[in-house]
Write a protein that binds this DNA or RNA. Sequence first.
DNA 1: TTCCCCTGCGCG
DNA 2: AAAGCGCGCAGGGGAA
Length: 644
Amino acid sequence: MSAIEPALVRTESELEHAVSVVSQFNEFVIDIETDGINPRTNALSWVGLATYGEVFLIPMQHRRGRLLREERLTKSGKPSKAQTPPVHKRYYGDPGAQLMPDVVTAAIEPLLFGEQLKIGHNVKFDMLSLAKYYGGRIPDGPYNDTLVMQHVVDENRRSYSLKDIVPDWLRISKDDRKGFYPKLGKNVASHPIDALAKYLAKDVRYCWLLWQALCDWISREDMWDVLKLEMDLYPVIMRMEAAGAYVDPDHLDEMEQELDLQLQTIERDAWTTAKVRTPFPLTNTNMKRDLLFKPKAEGGQGLKPLKLTPKRGDPVLDQATLEHYADKGNKLASLFLDYSEKQKLLGTYVLGLRTRMNNGKVHTSFTQHAAVTGRLSSRDPNLQNIPRDSNVRALFVAPPGYTLVVADYDQIELRVTAHFSLDERMRAIFEAGEDIHAGTYAAIVGKEIEDVTKDERQIGKGLNFAVVYGAGPPKVAAMSGVSVEDAKFFMKQYYKRFNNIEPWKYFVLNEARRRGSPAHPYLQPPYVTTLLGRKRRLPDLFAREYIPLGRAERQAINHRVQGTAAEIMKIAMIRVDQAFQDTPFTLILTVHDEIVSICPEGMENEAKELVVSALSGITLNERPIIDVPLVVTCEAARRWSEAK
DNA sequence: TTCCCCTGCGCG
DNA sequence: AAAGCGCGCAGGGGAA
């Protein structure tokens, strides 16, 4: 490929030209640079655009021109001729004429808010950052995110950064990669304007080429339905991230103080127990190690290390070790354990939330490229693993004047299983609207569902988990509270009674293997699909050893079920978003089989009705999406913890 | 200092 | 014979 000559857009007429060229095409790549990673607070510093054969780079208020001269200083401050003195001073030229961000954002508005396809690598970040310049308006679709596209065609990659993907596409050898995509520091403003232009030109140009290659590949893989769902969901996710989740600030303060106090108490208690003269923080691992494992004569507890670190031979201080000695009655070990538990609650959830708060809200990122099955994931902060029975969930509240509306699917994965397996007995339980776990137990022992006890229902639950996750007798036994022998018996009965489940599993696995080539398990891997055709490629379905083989088989079955459930929820989210247009209702969170919205106080019933019908009335080709009823529970609550 | 891997634990 | 899927984050430990 020929070298890219970055044409900098510095004047209004150049800007007008750039926009008019880009607007002639149906699609374009956009990539922006900012001074920070928080889209709600960062400032725009560069816009890069690419389309058929064209690249435009628009710097704004970039202060460093070309690098004129480097001065190397010794520590004493004197100029030095030595080869690599540690301190540099650099002199830069005039960066030249540039446009103001307001002028640029106004000019590109028709590109963003028009009908053209907007392409970018994680373009969500760019749009959320730009929304500030349009009074918070987030450009609606159509979008193509090359990050999501890459994940659709190859879900098993470790990295999805442009820097790692593009060289694969262009077949750049390992040795040439460093020079091919030079690493620029995070701080955009610190680089000379020409260096940054060169870098950004590569980014937008390669993103454009990547998009073209990915379009072909998605066609080849026949996965446009999957991509369409992801890209229809894209603006919905952006709106959710922008809306954010409200956190009760007073409650957060209270919890922080309470945990602080508890930590201090534990710390003081530990100092007394250890009989130390000088207080030390209970985060100090070396100190804790000494106190537990040094002989009593040296002020320690004289415990025997359970295992040692491989390199230095220090005693390991992990949870298992601490628990071992805490169980034996060592007070210090149990105090250390208590401390780390509270520390985790305080650090991960309380302070973790606090540092990410913005005007009373936290704005998570939902990623579409993290889960191999196609589930969404949530990060920075992760709002999908908030503890259920601690007080943390109660921190999430509706804003003043609003109520939370929380809806979730009942047993969606088992309903999907019933749909795919065509198991009549399993479907009958759902058709009759009965409790699946109790119904499962009743079916295998042949008793009435009304007579199933709580303990027996637990056995049914364990068996149902075993179906979806592929758990073996020991796990089923542990979950059901029965012996391994009994678990084996129940499982055997289960597959006898629900007699289509096992054949269905074998069918899915055989179908997957037929799609692959045993001779080339990586070039042409076996794969399983979801309802819409999302693939999970599993080379290990051809493994000869039973551990990886067994794992791959469990992953295969689980993919079809979990991935399809995820698709149903994604369609539901799009429908909720549509139903919420021109209403005061807002979708704010999703946790796999649950969605959380807010609505003005007093409008709960209307909101609930919209949500329930959006979730339960999903069709595909004018038929219900699965042949098993979708049951939704929905309730209004002041705090997230108060729902269900 | 920064990055990577591992373990443990929170959720569905 | 043995057999739990999918995530993200914090902390420990080691490598660069």
